[in-house]
Structures are given as structure tokens and as C-alpha cells.
């Protein structure tokens, strides 16, 4: 792992966020399967943390991020949203940080400059992100947009229209394809014939780069270079981060279409363990690593307790919420 571009405190922080995301999502698995959540089904990014943390870490607060739904947990944590607020949505409790009307994978909060996919309809979010980049360019705000999406989503027409428009307008945007090699039961090789998804950038005349998506520092460096390019007015870049979907598609998916050997192989490439090895090589004592791990676990446990102590949405809330909801449809 190349680390020159990051200080030890950045490395530690990246490690901490990846761990928090992992522990949060492991907790969601446990809560969902014991019937304690009030949600349709969680879609988790366990094992894919290096992509969202690598892509979204180190931007300015003004820069807009538009994360893929799988990996949104880590993206929200990068933007310092308290884990409790995310947990409330899963548990059907009243969240004050996020809208109670949408799942966390797809929710948006413009005060944090997070356009959460903008949509649970795959592909639409890419167009919205391109529009945000156009806004930044027209408003001369200096903001860059970093937008991620899955491999399967690159087969939507929106992807192609959006990338072409971003190229034609030379927009300040970085596209990050979180290629976890599966889209539900569809293996990427069965849905895309060009081999590398980064090759698709050729059609739009901007750089396409494939990077090891389980190496958080490689993802980070590649995205940062693309962000600089965008900030310098040189237009978009497509970064393909190759990782693996360790989780089932969603927690309702029995996931019987993949070989266990494949999963086993990728488990050994865990991005968190890899960063841990780097930190050790840099001289971080084992004790300190354990300490960070313990703190992350404590923080998630606390988030669950806090969320559980929050009120359910009561009928009175509902009435207030209704009027709010009606009001919020139109401005």
C-alpha cells in the first residue's frame, strides 16, 4: 500500500471509519435477523468499505458526494453523521438527522452535501450527480462532485447519457464504479463484455482507471488525483474500484448462486485487515489498534441504545408528520 500522501492521523481516521461502518453493518445483520429492525431489507457493503471511505475521505466539506447505496453507511460516517441517526431509521425510531420517509441507503441531506444516490431507481442518481456538477460549474463554487454506483448500474441508459454530458460540458465530477462483481444474481462478466468497466470511459473521451478496490489507500489516491483534475477544469474521470460483494445482495437474499470458494478467497482480502497490516508496518502498537477497535464497537453499541431510547413515531407525531409530509412534497 502506498501511504506517502497521507499522515498517520489520516490513516488512523480512515481505519476508524472503516471499522465503524463494518461494526454498524454487522450489528444491522444481527438486528435484522432477530426481527428488531423495522425496514424492508438492509443492503450492506461489508467488505466494500475501502471503496466508499477511499473515495469520499479527504474532500472539502463543500464538495458534494453522491454515494452508491451499498456503502452509504461509510459515506455518512465520513460526513460525520452520528451512527445513532442512521440506526434510528433502521429501527423505525424518530431520527432528527435524516428524513423518516426514506431508507438510509438512498436518503439525501444537503446540509451535509450528501446526495444519497438521489434515487433507489438505479442509474438516476448518476444524472442527478452530473446536474450537481453542472450547478457547481455554473455557480463557480469550486465544488467537485464524487459519485459512486455499482457495476450493474453501468448498464442503464442513464449512465451513458450522464457520462457523455459530463464530458461534453467538462464538468467537475469523478465517477467511481464500485465493481463488486455481482449485481444481484448477475455476474459482471455476463452483463458487460468489455472486461474492464473503466474502458467505457473511452467512449466519452476522458480517462478511465481501474484500481484495487480493497486497497483503501489506492482508491483514495486515485480519486484524489481525479478530483484535482476536475478542480483544475479538466473534466471527469471514471475510476473503477474492483472489490467483492461479501454480503448477500440484501439480507433477504439466500445467496445460493455463488461458490463458497469465491467468497472465501475474497474474505482473505479484507480491506480492513489490509489497512491494519499497513498501520502495524508503520509502527502502530497492537495495543492502539485494539483500542481503536474497542472504541468503534462501543460507539455502535451506544448508537443502538440511544436509538432504542428514542420515541417511536406515535399517532400524534404522525399527524404533525403528515402535515409536514404534505408540505414537503411541494415547496
Amino acid at each position: 500500500m502506498k501511504t506517502e500522501h497521507l499522515s498517520l492521523s489520516d490513516l488512523t481516521n480512515i481505519y476508524r471509519i472503516m471499522l465503524l461502518s463494518r461494526k454498524f453493518e454487522e450489528k444491522i445483520v444481527e438486528l435484522f435477523h432477530s426481527g428488531k429492525t423495522r425496514c424492508f431489507t438492509p443492503h450492506l457493503g461489508i467488505g466494500e468499505e475501502a471503496v466508499s471511505v477511499g473515495a469520499f475521505y479527504g474532500l472539502s466539506k463543500q464538495d458534494l458526494i453522491s454515494p452508491h447505496y451499498r456503502g452509504a453507511t461509510a459515506a455518512w460516517l465520513v460526513r460525520k453523521l452520528p451512527a445513532t441517526e442512521l440506526m434510528c431509521i433502521y429501527l423505525g425510531k424518530k431520527s432528527t438527522g435524516l428524513a423518516n420517509t426514506m431508507a438510509v441507503q438512498w436518503t439525501t441531506n444537503m446540509t451535509l452535501n450528501v446526495i444519497g444516490m438521489a434515487s433507489s431507481i438505479l442509474g438516476g442518481g448518476i444524472e442527478i450527480a452530473v446536474g450537481a456538477a453542472l450547478g457547481a460549474k455554473l455557480g463557480k463554487t469550486g465544488q467537485v462532485v464524487v459519485n459512486s454506483f455499482g457495476d450493474g448500474t453501468t448498464n442503464r441508459g442513464n449512465f451513458h447519457e450522464a457520462l457523455n454530458l459530463a464530458a461534453v460540458f467538462r464538468l467537475p465530477i469523478v465517477f467511481v464504479c464500485q465493481n463488486n462483481q455481482w449485481a444481484m444474481n448477475m455476474r459482471v462478466a455476463k452483463a458487460v463484455t468489455v472486461g474492464k468497466i473503466s474502458k467505457r470511459a473511452v467512449a466519452y473521451g476522458f480517462p478511465g482507471i481501474t484500481v484495487d478496490g480493497n486497497d483503501v489507500l489506492a482508491v483514495h489516491q486515485t480519486v484524489q488525483e481525479a478530483v484535482q483534475r476536475a478542480r483544475d477544469g479538466l473534466g471527469p474521470t471514471l475510476v473503477e474500484a474492483v472489490t467483492y460483494r461479501m454480503s448477500p445482495h440484501s439480507e433477504r437474499d439466500p445467496d445460493q448462486y455463488r461458490a463458497e470458494a469465491e467468497r472465501r478467497k475474497w474474505r482473505r482480502k479484507c480491506p480492513i485487515l489490509r489497512l491494519e497490516a499497513t498501520l502495524k508496518a508503520k509502527g502502530m502498537p497492537q495495543e492502539e489498534l485494539l483500542n481503536i477497535q474497542q472504541n468503534a464497537a462501543d460507539e455502535i453499541a451506544k448508537a443502538v441504545d440511544e436509538a432504542l431510547s428514542r420515541p417511536d413515531l406515535t399517532p400524534e407525531d404522525r399527524l404533525q408528520q403528515w402535515s409536514a409530509i404534505y408540505r414537503e412534497i411541494y415547496i
Binding site: R38, G92, T101, L313, R318, I325, I329
Partner: peptide, 14 residues
Amino acid sequence: LDIPIPYNRTLEYH
């Protein structure tokens, strides 16, 4: 109701 379907289960029911 003429609203987008809310995520929260209580709201959705109504």
C-alpha cells in the same frame, strides 16, 4: 393519499 409512500412503517400504514 396523494403523497410518496413513506419508509417508516407507521406512516406507510396510514
